[in-house]
Amino acid sequence: MSPAVVDTFYGLFEAWGIPWIVPRLIIMFVVASIIILFISVAAMFLIWWERKISAHIQVRFGPMRVGGWHGWAQSIADGIKLLLKEDIIPAGADKPVFVLAPMVVFAAAFAAYVVIPFGPGLIVQDLNIGILYIIAISSLAVVGIIMAGWSSNNKYAALGALRSAAQAVSYEVPLVVSLLGPLLIVGSLSMTKIVEAQRGLWFIAVQPLAFLTYFTCAVAETNRLPFDIPEAESELVAGFHVEYSGMRFAIFFLAEYANMFTVCAIATTVFLGGWRGPLLPAWTWFLIKTFFLLFVMMWLRWTLARVRVDQLMDVAWKVLLPLAFVNLGFTGLLVLFL
């Protein structure tokens, strides 16, 4: 939001003699609502899009009926259906934790949107520790997943949650290390500064290795297919959300797609020049790049088979981490001597 509008807003309330906390809360509420709206619409679109892509890769059509044109309203209809379903809490479940878990997962996904720069000035709060904040806050999702797995009182859910914890902890390390390369070049953690630094040359050209390791880790962090062992349908039924149904399940789903958008938005910001691009407005470029990366994620999902647990750990510790460290070392040397 532009500062002038905000200042007028504050001034209005000050003139009425209302404490500053009130307009502040109103602004927070409005911004949060906008972001939630964006997440919901984006997630619904992504779900529909993923179903379309998966269908066409398998040489079929996917949803075609709801809403007329290529089933565009399918996700909306599904959402309404999930809202209307009975809210089931298993008898053996730990009720408060069970209820809280999807909220924790979603809150973690939601909080990361604070520092995503959709365009110049189109950022909720340009924190000077932007990247660090995202990494820290997105790790919270694991807590929610473990809560879900543990409170379900179900062996598959517990196994899925434990796998998810192992995976998230393992992949967090190369993810952060691969992000350090570009950060060394920029010299700042602020998302806006990172985009500003890519005037002229995107960091994917300077740091291709970092981009590849980051993207692989991002796919693993969001529990998506080549690395989806936390949910592994064929082994664990549905992993940590096996006992969830109706709206609680929908929130997990929403959080998964919100997380996908977040990691792709970070990749766009750090490696693909953020909102930079010719002709079109800045936010369009940001969305185009992000959705292209999301497409690549879906494309990977419908191309590769699921890896085993030991292979998963191998990839994280024996391949991605050394590569990320090599990249970090070279970048550090170059930054130091050039």
Binding site: I53, A55, H56, I57, Q58, V59, R60, F61, W299, L300, W302, T303, L304
Partner: peptide, 14 residues
């Protein structure tokens, strides 16, 4: 393998 799936993505659905 990505190339193969991309090719299938653009073949007409049966």
């Amino acid at each position: 393998s990505l190339r193969i799936t991309l090719r299938y993505l653009f073949t007409r659905a049966v």
